[in-house]
Amino acid sequence: MTAPLLAVDRLTMRFGGLVAIDAVSFHAENQKITSIIGPNGAGKTTVFNCLTGFYKPTSGRLLLTTPKGEFHLERMEDFRINQRAGVARTFQNIRLFPAMSVLENLMVAQHNKLMRASVWSLAGLLGLGAYRRAERDAVELGRYWLERIDLIDRADKPAGDLPYGDQRRLEIARAMCSEPRLLCLDEPAAGLNPRETLLLNDLLRFIRDEHNAGVLLIEHDMSMVMEISDHIVVLDYGRKIAEGDPEAVRNNPAVIRAYLGEDEEESA
């Protein structure tokens, strides 16, 4: 058996006296959508923040295994986690570069690749051919994703002017432009209408199936989670209370009790 893409091992995060995550362990596989669900305050976003280096976990290990090697995410600086290990994320409150154009947003995501191509700006300043080629390729990658999310007509408009749903998808496309091995999405369906949620589902499936990356998802929209997840991890008060495929989680009594409420009806 090969090592999983991401192995979270007894991850614990304390803020002062508050234990936000308590010894949580789970795996996320390549080319699978793994969802983390749980009521508000269960510690989902904290898991993400530990994974992407914005918090330093109190204890526990976060091991990412890719063809490039093994990365102990808990020991890396936040920007290196994307740069070296190839973990990209989106945010609950969208964080685009609003004054920059849609395409520029996607170009910034390819920063490290382009920096190398521009030989730390020297070749770029001189306008050498090698850099020009790299830039053209970067634009092409941007075009590819813009076509995918259907924003190609708005490529040169400021990202801040896009409607909410488009901003959500642009943020995912931007994360994908950094060519990650693991994509972490923090409530991507929040605030989307049903049609936009369907578009989002297609996009996530496409990423999983065509892009050799694992997807880690935090989501409140249960119908969406149940529909697209390959594997679900359930958190409650910072602990893992269940995990399994959607069917198993749906029928798990602990989950029903903690998450779906005492009456056993499924809430959407």
């Binding site: 986690i81 964080r95 570069f97 609003p98 004054a99 170009m107 700006s121």
Partner: peptide, 23 residues
């Protein structure tokens, strides 16, 4: 150039920059 775009991106949102691997 990438560095110039990264400047503007940092001005817009530093946290997003870090999540995209910009030092």
């Amino acid at each position: 150039l990438p560095v110039g775009r990264a400047w503007e991106a940092l001005r817009e949102d530093e946290i997003a920059c870090r999540s995209l691997g910009v030092n």
